[in-house]
Computed example of a mutant assay.
Amino acid sequence: MSADTERGQQQRTIRCLIAKVGLDGHDRGAHVIARAFRDAGFEVIYSGLHRAPEEIVQAAVQEDVDVLGISILSGAHNTLVPKIIDGLKEYDAFEDTLILVGGIVPDEDRPELKEMGVSEVFGPGTPMQETIEFVRENAPQRD
Rank of each mutant, 00 (worst) to 15 (best):
L80M: 03
V81T: 01
K83M: 09
K83E: 12
I84G: 02
I85Y: 04
I85D: 01
I85E: 06
D86M: 13
G87F: 04
L88G: 05
L88E: 01
L88W: 11
K89D: 04
E90M: 14
E90R: 15
E90W: 04
Y91V: 03
A93R: 14
A93P: 07
F94L: 11
D96F: 00
D96W: 02
D96V: 08
T97L: 09
T97E: 09
L98R: 09
L98E: 12
I99T: 11
L100N: 08
L100K: 04
V101A: 02
G102M: 07
G102L: 10
G102A: 08
I104A: 13
I104F: 14
P106M: 09
P106G: 00
D107L: 07
D107R: 08
D107M: 01
E108A: 05
P111C: 10
P111A: 09
E112P: 00
L113E: 03
L113S: 05
K114G: 02
E115V: 08
E115I: 12
M116E: 07
G117D: 03
G117T: 11
S119A: 15
S119I: 03
S119V: 08
E120H: 14
E120D: 12
V121P: 02
F122D: 04
G123E: 10
G123C: 09
G123A: 11
P124Q: 08
P124H: 13
P124I: 11
T126Q: 10
P127T: 01
M128Q: 05
M128Y: 07
Q129W: 03
Q129R: 12
Q129D: 14
T131Q: 01
T131R: 00
T131M: 10
I132N: 07
I132R: 09
E133Q: 14
E133L: 08
E133G: 13
V135C: 09
R136P: 03
R136A: 03
R136K: 14
E137F: 03
E137Y: 05
E137G: 10
